[in-house]
Structures are given as structure tokens and as C-alpha cells.
Design a protein around this nucleic acid. Structure first.
Length: 117
DNA sequence: TCCCTGACTGGTT
DNA sequence: AAACCAGCCAGGG
């Protein structure tokens, strides 16, 4: 039979369907005043390296029926999304502190899901 | 099906 | 510190 071209053969690093839901699930667990990074969530789900997809999934959080606190997800440097205008305000209203350079102070607000470094 | 883009990241210049 | 680059993989044109 013809050789399968699917990248899943050999090494299955393909995102399973339902990935987006899982992302929402985790994000909903972030408490007020805390933030997590895209990469942190990807790793938590078992897919290190797919931070982009976390962001991509979050971009569609409007499709979710349950509310998703998307503003509590920031990039690895504590920077907020390209649509950060609203995001910053939401975070500050939860007591999140920003550094003078406009980044979330991760040393103070990083959510650790009961884990540690 | 090819090519480009993306709410990302970590390493190298 | 900032720019650049390679890796990641799904979606859309």
C-alpha cells in the first residue's frame, strides 16, 4: 500500500481533537489575580511547544458557552495580547500589578497549578 | 496541495 | 536590549 503521508505516523505529536476545550478548561481554573503563560498551559495539557495553538484557541474563546477568563493568559515575558487594551484593564481590576515596562509582574502573579519549578 | 500567517517560545546574533 | 531565526502545527486563501 502507498506510504502514508500523515505526520502522525512514527511520532504522534499531533493535537487531538478537543484541544481547544481543554485549553478553556485549564484557563477557567486560573484564579483571580493570577496569570499563566501560553506555553505553561500547553505544557500542562501535555503538548509542550504548541503555545501558538493555545493563543489560537483562546482567540476563539467567544465560541465557548461558558465564560473564559482569557485575559489571565499572557506570553512568557508577561506581555499581554495584541488586543491588550481591554486585557490590561481587566487584570488591573483584579489587582494584577504591571511593571513600568508594561509587563505583568510574573514573579508575583504567576499561577502555579499547585506545582513548583 | 502549496504557501503564508499566527493572542508563542527559546536560543543565537 | 533588540533583532533575528528556527521550531511548533492548525486554518485559511
Amino acid at each position: 500500500m502507498p506510504k502514508p503521508k500523515s505526520p502522525a505516523t512514527g511520532s504522534e505529536r499531533v493535537l487531538r481533537p478537543g484541544f481547544q476545550e481543554r485549553v478553556f478548561d485549564v484557563v477557567r481554573q486560573i484564579p483571580e489575580g493570577k496569570v499563566a503563560s501560553y506555553g505553561q498551559i500547553a505544557t500542562l495539557l501535555g503538548y509542550p511547544g504548541v503555545a501558538r495553538h493555545v493563543g489560537n484557541a483562546l482567540a476563539a474563546c467567544g465560541n465557548s458557552e461558558l465564560p473564559v477568563p482569557w485575559h489571565r493568559v499572557v506570553n512568557a515575558r508577561g506581555g499581554i495580547s495584541t488586543r491588550g487594551a481591554e486585557q490590561r484593564q481587566l487584570l488591573e481590576s483584579e489587582g494584577v500589578v504591571f511593571t513600568p515596562s508594561g509587563l505583568v509582574d510574573l514573579s508575583q502573579h504567576r499561577w502555579q497549578h499547585a506545582l513548583r519549578d
